[in-house]
Design a protein around this nucleic acid. Structure first.
Lengths: 253, 253
DNA sequence: CGTAAATTTGATTGGTCTCAACTTTCGTGG
DNA sequence: CCACGAAAGTTGAGACCAATCAAATTTACG
């Protein structure tokens, strides 16, 4: 054990799987929470919002939430678990487009083409809130706050392409990736310094446009620099400031 | 003259600057056309749509349409000219996010942050239709087709990040870039095989995450392979099929 | 417990960047 | 109209980071 830390094993991090028994907490951290609140928990409109939501799942690791070419009928908020979206070109090469954590929304890029342009694959056992898009649009017409919320969701996703931008080194991209995940977990109320990487090294590499071997090497280097602790897919950020510094060119602010 | 083609100079391509005297044609190719049509050219709503549109310009090459941090109040449809959007990090390094041609819309990524997250810089003398976003939202609430159109615009832009995706060779990225431009010009009624590159080699390189020298080398190679003719910024695609083939991994379908 | 998949680590290769020099284009003013 | 300087673009040579190839090891799972 070359780690300077006492424990031989990383303790289990808090499991970022929403408690099905705690609707209020989950909804409070969901990307739709402000829309739901705007609709009014105590107004008749809420009933309509509830109407168009359907809880779906579980999906096991590797199962598809939707597939490329499926007709677009709904968007999905991740309720628990993790999802990757990906495209597969005709030579069979996979391209990972993004990872989605509890509270985040998938499927928005299907509105225009009216068919899903990518696959969504569960990385963990996952549950979702399914929002019928026609019903959601109709509601948005009647409740400006819901419309505004949808515009904001779409616009927000437009701004999140920056991890891939620029010709940055493997270290910069990896540091930015870890800090991005940390920030997104923190935004949903989970630990920002200890979490589980639901995706494989290969998926991370693919997403960051690196080779899987490079991801492994960078993580090893970060560990030897005491920037992180990592055992398998359990991660602890030991020096978030240094990581933020490393990835600053790719991170917001 | 090492070219096998008879003419010593490339003829001037059709100038993709909308004819101000031909409103109908421009609006027919604008990204908002279907919204305008949906609003109904002969209904009272059209008056409202006209109300919230303001023609702005000219902006000369190098002038800003908006700057990072400006409060978000409107989106802009390019009426004529070309625009690049870019972010500048605190070390002063520029990152080109995209190029926008006549009929395309800029500013959508500012809805969520409520401030523009990037600069928009004219590459040509340019004119715009400015759409007040609050007014547009209000109209969208009353006219479902307008709302739908905004959703589609936003979603479409989500799907257009693919040129940057993947770790592809300089040749693949350049070929895909040229074919993407060609397709977008064609969609607006301009020539798909002869057009002017309004952006510098440096801007192309930055956008494609290459060095300017690499862009220059790739274009020279394409020329020597008779895939293109290029003189300065005047471009002719001599073998679009081969270029599409080269860039297929990055192009839709 | 055994096999396949994932991960780590090492050695080598290669494509693109960097540095550098030169040419061309463009805008400006004499 | 031409001269001039600055910016943009081209081309070459060498260096370097990450990809690829290869192999050992660990982990996951039936």
């Amino acid at each position: 054990m070359d780690s300077k830390h006492p424990a031989g094993r990383l303790p289990e991090p808090p499991n970022p799987i929403a408690d099905d028994g705690d609707e209020t907490h989950f909804c409070g951290t969901c990307a739709f929470s402000s829309a739901c609140i705007a609709a009014g928990y105590n107004k008749p409109e809420l009933a309509q919002l509830q109407c168009l939501v359907e809880h779906v799942g579980p999906f096991r690791a590797g199962e598809h939430i939707f597939r490329t070419g499926d007709p677009f009928r709904a968007i999905f908020a991740v309720r628990s678990g993790t999802v990757k979206t990906r495209m597969v070109d005709k030579e069979g090469r996979e391209q990972v487009l993004g990872f989605y954590l509890p509270g985040e929304v998938i499927g928005l890029n299907a509105i225009y083409p009216e068919h899903f342009p990518c696959d969504a694959v569960a990385l963990d056992t996952s549950f979702f809130c399914r929002f019928s898009f026609p019903a959601m649009s109709a509601l948005a017409s009647r409740i400006p706050a819901v419309q505004k919320h949808l515009f904001r969701l779409l616009s927000k996703e437009l701004g999140s392409a920056s991890l891939l931008a620029g010709d940055h080194s493997a270290d910069e991209r990896m540091a930015a990736f870890l800090m991005d995940l940390a920030g997104r977990y923190a935004a949903r109320g989970f630990s920002a310094t200890r979490f589980h990487l639901s995706m494989s090294r290969g998926d991370i590499a693919n997403y960051l446009r690196l080779a899987a071997e490079t991801v492994s090497r960078v993580l090893s280097r970060f560990r030897s620099q005491n920037l992180i602790r990592i055992e398998g897919r359990e991660l602890e950020l030991l020096n978030p400031d240094a990581l933020r510094q490393l990835g600053q060119a790719l991170l917001p602010d």
